[in-house]
């Protein structure tokens, strides 16, 4: 007994069902990837020891509770912070007492390059607003990124962000180390 062929299923509403699901996922989707300023925290120290760094190698950046800046002992401005930091971190040759020391590094792909021994020391108060702190971090990052870009332009003819080869990125990172040191927390001024 031959079976009757099964009646065809009406697939006309299939599209509607799919549409419904599609719209649901469209609405719930968040495409944007989180982004931000990535930093590495230093490992904890039991008792903060004073590491002797020459005064000329340190650029002190203080942010107080009123979000005012003190850069190297003078009142600073967020607008000029990047340029100050950049100038400070640019290796100077021949040696100049007003700038941090310069060392010559042997880096593969680059050969011997001048590298500044400068450190930017960032200190903030408990009362500093997070917005200001991020602003300062951002400006400092900008200074380093510009230095990296310049270095990258000189040696590889392209901006740092456009470099693809792992060893090239590593070489530039070694030539321009991001040295932002954050002080152990303590309160600056009155709270």
């Amino acid at each position: 007994m031959a079976r009757r062929s099964s009646p065809e299923i009406n697939a006309g509403s299939m599209a509607d069902i799919a549409f419904l699901l599609l719209i649901f996922f469209l609405v719930t989707t968040t495409m944007d990837v989180d982004s931000g300023i990535t930093r590495r925290l230093p490992p904890p120290v039991d008792k903060p020891e004073d590491i002797q760094i020459k005064m000329r190698n340190v650029l002190n950046v203080l942010v107080n509770k009123n979000d005012r800046l003190l850069v190297d002992g003078r009142e600073g401005d967020i607008k000029t912070l990047k340029d100050v930091a950049k100038k400070f971190m640019t290796p100077v040759f021949p040696d100049n007492v007003n700038f941090p020391e310069t060392e010559i590094k042997e880096i593969p792909l680059l050969g011997s390059v001048y590298s500044s021994k400068g450190v930017i020391s960032l200190k903030n108060d408990k009362g500093t607003s997070y917005d200001m702190y991020i602003n300062v971090q951002n400006e400092l990052a900008r200074a380093f990124n510009e230095l990296k870009d310049e270095m990258s332009m000189r040696y590889f003819g392209t901006k740092f962000a456009n470099l693809v080869k792992e060893d090239q990125i590593k070489a530039i990172n070694e030539a321009v180390p991001v040295r932002i040191s954050e002080a152990e927390p303590e309160s600056i001024g009155d709270n």
């Binding site: 989180d34 982004s35 931000g36 300023i37 990535t38 991020i134 602003n135 951002n138 990052a141 900008r142």
Partner: peptide, 10 residues
Amino acid sequence: LPSATEVQKL
């Protein structure tokens, strides 16, 4: 969130 220019993607 505050805004910044020098960001990296997570």
